[in-house]
Amino acid sequence: MTDVDQPRPRDPRFAIWIGVTAGLFVLALVVGFIWLPLAQRGADGLDLWSAICRAVGLPSGNARVSAPVAGQPASQVAWTTETRRRLAQGDASAGAAIAQACNNCHGVVGISADAIIPNLAGQSAAAIYKQLDDYKSGKRDPAVMGVYVSPLSDQNLLDLAAHYGLLPNPTGDTLSTQSSTSTVARRLIDVGAPLRGIAPCASCHGPAGVTPGAPGLRGQQRAYLELQMQLFKDGTRRNDISEQMRSVARQLTSEEIAMLAAHYSSIPDTGGR
């Protein structure tokens, strides 16, 4: 202790501590940026530079990338900032004029009279735009819709989406728990079926079937919902980006699909149907 108590012009501790810290830093760099990325599974044939780039988080030229996926993307629409910006430029009044051609089937206020034809009122504008674009590009079966959509410009689609997005959804936006129906449907919606790899419907579509970022389901036509889930299930419909709906629907039984369609179409009861 006595030597410590003597004042010294220079204190060697600085050099020792800073040296130890710097040594630790260099060691962590070597392990974290060279050794670990090279030792990881799937790193065979990775050169030093690519290993470092991988640890830094940069894609690099000769890193092993899985072979390009054959085929086409599920949709031409990507949810980029640019897409969001264009969505905001939709003109609802122009869309209302174009919608004259849609009213025969989808109803004057966006509520269809036929259970196999979907309601559009209050649907998220992003969802409507994507489906229209998918019909136009053939990503979704254009057998019926193609003839209506093909003459429309991209701006027309944005206008239509804005128009239907603004029409009031007669079922409203309030959370209701009264509707249900089967506990099977309720469980699939809230919990999913983890053992079958089915995520809860609510995790994307919201506990009440309405949430930003996913198509709204509440009050949708029952037969339409059931048919679409069946089409996803057998792979006929394939315009879901990342296959999320196909992955879920493939695991659902036809009975469960029917119960889910019944649940979503009847929350809450609109009285008129």
């Binding site: 630790l24 830093f25 760099l29 392990v31 974290g32 940026f33 991988r54 640890a55 988080g57």
Partner: peptide, 17 residues
């Protein structure tokens, strides 16, 4: 996802300190 695994390791080491 925006942080490279190397930096996560580096910070783990210093967290240990």
């Amino acid at each position: 996802p925006q942080i490279g695994a190397g930096f996560k390791f580096l910070h783990t080491v210093f967290t240990g300190m």
